[in-house]
Structures are given as structure tokens and as C-alpha cells.
Design a protein around this nucleic acid. Structure first.
Lengths: 203, 203
DNA sequence: GTCTATACAACGATAGAC
DNA sequence: GTCTATCGTTGTATAGAC
């Protein structure tokens, strides 16, 4: 790596002077751009331009567009991408049960309040709603069906219907007995549905 | 006793003098009491007392508490109870598909806006939200599983997860392809899930 | 006279107190 | 278990509108 410093018009390479917080600047810029443009339309370059840093900084600090979105907008206590990656490692025959188990243990924290807040955002007409929807459709539900050759999008949508519905009933509407049921009871009950949506016959 | 009495202390029987609108008075009173007390806690007697009429008038004008709630609070373009009664008539082996078909054809009107509005009410902290939740848990989802001897409540909740999730994805989040899919495609895909939740093995 | 909106009593179910 | 209170609902007689 060469580190020549020319003072005439070109940006200086290498580490910026102390005192600037690139990471925080990216988070602020990301929240603005995502809420203005939605998830798909927002570009990493536009976010970097708004933060007045190099686009490569997004990868350096957050590992990519998806993770930046997760950290800046969702502010979840877990990383969806990491959990999905874990799921993809296991046996395909037990994927349905594992999806339900991971879903419940992920959202069961804070009495389901985080999921409830998310649903309220999507249900209302907030600016972030479309960004949220795009992110979940593409990067969460879509991720698990990318192996499926045909009707992958339909499978992803069907998965979404069951998981979102489960979350709404347990965390938002709080119907009993599902609201207080143990995780494994719901894994047994809902797992086969998810398994079929992901790998079974749907027509 | 807050019922109106004449000079002798007896209530006048028979048709009231012209100009009184018992039906409208009940509707107004019902909206107030349901939003204050929720669905279960609100009593027909309390609503009638508020409207200053006899409790039997609820049955005469609306056919019962459920129908009064439907007309006063939900203001739907269809009657949930009637649709459910239709479903109960048919073959138990095809109940899953028929539930999905009836659900979709009922809410597909007005581009799903009525369902979306309902979800927004439940998600927000409106006063009517708890009444809505109680009504749907007891009188809609619960109605279809009252034949099941054991775990009827769990089955009703599971049914709710799938149907609410389907509605949220199709009418609120509007994920594609489910948002634009034909009814029969979704009947084939989701019907088996509902059938299992209603009549199959869930543990 | 006919129709019907009304009032009142009573029934079966259910939940809570004791 | 028993008792009590209250619920939603039903049956029926009647008063007033037509």
C-alpha cells in the first residue's frame, strides 16, 4: 500500500485525523436515506456520500448494506442475518422446526415488545415502513428459500404469512394460550407448516 | 334501577311514542360501552341501560350481542357470523380450504383496506383494540374449533396465526406474489395448514 | 283490526364466594 | 360441593302506530 500525500486537490488516503466518527456519521446518514428511499432504492454510495465518507467504510464498519440497515434502523438485540446463517447450516428435514424455534427465542425477549413495535411501524404509514417491508421480504424471508428452484418467492411469502401471524398473535394481540405457550409446544404445532412451505408441495 | 318509569312506578309496555329510535340509541350506547369495557366485559344489560331501553331490544333489533358488535363497531361489509355458519355446514374434510377461500373473498374487497384498518386498530393502543381482539378470539376464530374436544383454544389460536398472517402479508405489507395471487393458488397453498390446525395432529 | 315495538319474567349457563 | 349473582337469550302479553 502506497501512502502518498498530494496536497493539490486529491483526497488524502489513509487514516483520517482523530476526532471524526465515521461510524456514527454512517448510522445517521443511513437512517435518513433508508427512510427517504426505502431499502431497495437506497444505495450504499448515496449513504456514504451523505456521511461524506468512502463507500468502502460501510463494509469496514458494518459488513454490508443489510447489517447497516439492521443496526441503524431496526436496532434489534440480535442479528437476523447471523441467525439465518445458523439455520442454513443444519439439516433440511428439520428446518421448519428450527425456524420456528429461532424465531420465538429471538423475539421472546422484552416480552415481545420489539416485535410489536415493528408491526406498529409496518401497519402505520411511517416513512420507514416500506424500508422495513423490503428488508424483511428480501433479506429475511427470502434468504431461506433461495435454494428452492421454483416458486421461491411464493414459498418465502408463505413463510412470512405464518411467522408474522405467529408473532402478531403472540406479541401484539396476545391471544391465549399462544401468548404464554412454551416454545417447544409451538415448535411442534407450527414447525410442520413451515417445513411444508419451505420444502414440501404447495400446489 | 335506571329504567324510566311512569308515575305509578311501572314501565309502560308496548310500542313507544313516535320519534324514538331504539335502534340508533343502542348503536351509540354499544360503541361507548364496548370501547370502555372491551367485548367480554361489556354486557348487553349495561348497553341497554345506557340506551335506556330493555335488554331484549338487543335481540330484537340485532339478533344478539355478537351481531350488535359487528354492526356497531366493526362496520364490515359482510357478517362474520353468517360466513362462519356457512363454513360449519360443509364437509369437515375440506374445511381448511373453505376457510381460506371464504377469508380471502371476504376481505379482498376495497383492495384489502378494511383488513388493514382493522390491523392498525389492533396494533395501536386504541380503546377499541381490546374489544376487537376479544371479539375475534372468542367469536370468530373460536367458533370454528368449538367442535374439537381437546385443545380447542390452541387450535383456534393457531388458526388465527395463519389467517392473520395471511391477511397482513396480502393486505398490509403487500408482499409479492401473495399480494396479487389468485384466490385458488392461496387456497391450495394455505388450505392444508388450516385443515391440520383444525382437525389434524398438532403435538 | 293488524302489525310490531316494547316490557317483563324466566330459563339455562357460568363464574365466584364460601 | 353449594349457593348466589349475573350473564345472554327467549317467550309472551300488551300498548300504541298504522
Amino acid at each position: 500500500m502506497t501512502t502518498p500525500t498530494n496536497q493539490d486537490g486529491e483526497r488524502r488516503r489513509g487514516r483520517r485525523p482523530g476526532g471524526t466518527d465515521t461510524r456514527a456519521a454512517l448510522l445517521t446518514a443511513a437512517r435518513e436515506v433508508f427512510s427517504e428511499q426505502g431499502y431497495d432504492n437506497a444505495t450504499v454510495r448515496a449513504i456514504a456520500r451523505r456521511a461524506e465518507v468512502d463507500p468502502a467504510m460501510v463494509n469496514h464498519w458494518f459488513g454490508g448494506k443489510e447489517s447497516l440497515f439492521t443496526e441503524a434502523v431496526l436496532e434489534l438485540p440480535f442479528n437476523p442475518q447471523e441467525r439465518i446463517a445458523e439455520l442454513a447450516k443444519g439439516d433440511l428435514d428439520t428446518l421448519g422446526e428450527r425456524v420456528v424455534r429461532t424465531f420465538l427465542t429471538s423475539w421472546d425477549v422484552q416480552d415481545g415488545g420489539i416485535f410489536a413495535a415493528l408491526i406498529r411501524s409496518v401497519a402505520s404509514r411511517e416513512r420507514v415502513a416500506s424500508a422495513l417491508k423490503e428488508f424483511f421480504q428480501r433479506s429475511v424471508f427470502g434468504q431461506l428459500t433461495e435454494v428452492a428452484d421454483d416458486s421461491a418467492e411464493l414459498r418465502a411469502n408463505l413463510l412470512a404469512t405464518q411467522m408474522i401471524g405467529l408473532g402478531v398473535v403472540r406479541y401484539v394481540a396476545r391471544f391465549e394460550p399462544v401468548a404464554s405457550a412454551g416454545v417447544e409446544v409451538l415448535v411442534k404445532a407450527v414447525g410442520p407448516t413451515v417445513q411444508r412451505y419451505l420444502t414440501g408441495s404447495i400446489d
